[in-house]
Design a protein around this nucleic acid. Structure first.
Length: 303
DNA sequence: GCGTCCAGGTCTACC
DNA sequence: GGTAGACCTGGACGC
């Protein structure tokens, strides 16, 4: 086993733990949080099929350290790819200065700029984000964890007796409806996940381009909704992971949290919630999510 | 231990 | 465009 140490420079407004705990992804494999060692683990599969185990820490301001374990020494090209994938997960190349400047105009939301919340952790590949998002629909978080764990354990590649990688589109496409129902516990989502993986594996759709192409929110939303199993909630939350923040993506949990924060627990319509955030324009989805999860910081995070 | 009920988004058929 | 019902699972609850 070979070990490398890589370093990444981060923007001054980047906060490691608030990005790690920005939502539930950090507790879904191949991500894993090690609270004792204050690190985020991630098993990456590089484009040449090589598996590398990354242990990411933030030893100093504006710096991330990546301890990389691999079967063979990593070439400079592989090291470059590791840096690129981790930068993408942590959104290090997205400029949040405008957002933090914007929220400073609202006394109620100034804490967002002060605490540097807003960067949302994402997977190295859009494919993984979409599969995981479908696994969050219409079920408890416990079932989402079961489905993702089953995907990784049964279809991912095993690294040195430990973690498994996230399965490729081809790996999921090569299974069957019955397998996804029985082994993954995907239930009625099975045909959606199978069709989606087949379309990606056969290059009928190019979802990885969603991060690089300069598409409008409406166009991206339309393309996400064209994927069966991705409804309004899933598409809006995926948009946030693609850097588009002008939709809320309400679900039962965020609705409940909104009722609690703004109406003493009394239920209100989705239209009322939408109206509340409408004036925040293209940043409303990020302000909304930051507000819904603010209590996680005090609770030292629930995952 | 077993049976029943409920919560959780999305799709499809229907009006 | 809006609405009802089906889809499937895990967990809570009562017996």
């Amino acid at each position: 086993m070979k070990t490398h140490s890589l370093t990444l420079t981060t923007p001054s407004d980047f906060h490691f733990w608030r990005t790690v705990y920005s939502h539930g992804w950090c507790s879904l494999p191949p991500f894993r949080v090690d609270k004792e060692l204050a690190s985020l683990h991630r098993l990456l599969e590089l484009s040449d099929g090589t598996l590398v185990h990354c242990v990411i820490t933030a030893p100093a301001l504006e710096k991330l350290k990546i301890s990389v374990q691999s079967g063979k020494p990593c070439s400079s090209r592989q090291q470059q790819e590791i840096r690129k994938q981790i930068r993408s997960c942590f959104r290090l190349d997205e400029d949040y200065a405008e957002f933090f400047q914007y929220v400073k105009h609202y006394p109620y939301y100034r804490w967002i700029a002060k605490l540097h919340t807003g960067r949302l952790l994402r997977s190295p590949m859009v494919f993984e984000d979409i599969v995981k998002m479908i696994c969050t629909t219409n079920c408890s978080w416990a079932l989402t964890e079961i489905m993702v764990n089953n995907f990784v354990e049964s279809l991912g590649k095993k690294f040195n007796g430990g973690m498994h990688s996230f399965p490729t589109p081809e790996a999921i496409a090569s299974t069957s409806d019955a397998f996804l129902r029985k082994e993954i516990h995907a239930g009625y989502r099975a045909p959606f996940l199978l069709e989606f993986s087949e379309n990606v594996a056969s290059h009928k759709i190019d979802i990885e381009a969603f991060r690089s192409e300069n598409l409008s929110t409406d166009e991206l939303y339309k393309q996400l909704r064209a994927i069966k199993g991705v409804g309004e909630y899933a598409a809006s939350n995926l948009l946030r992971l693609l850097g588009h923040y002008d939709r809320l993506g309400l679900d039962s949990w965020t609705r409940g949290k909104y009722y609690e924060l703004h109406h003493g627990g009394r239920k209100v319509s989705d239209t009322t919630i939408e109206k509340h955030y409408a004036s925040y324009g293209k940043w409303r989805g990020l302000i909304f999510w930051s507000e819904m999860t603010k209590h996680w910081i005090k609770q030292k995070f629930p995952f």
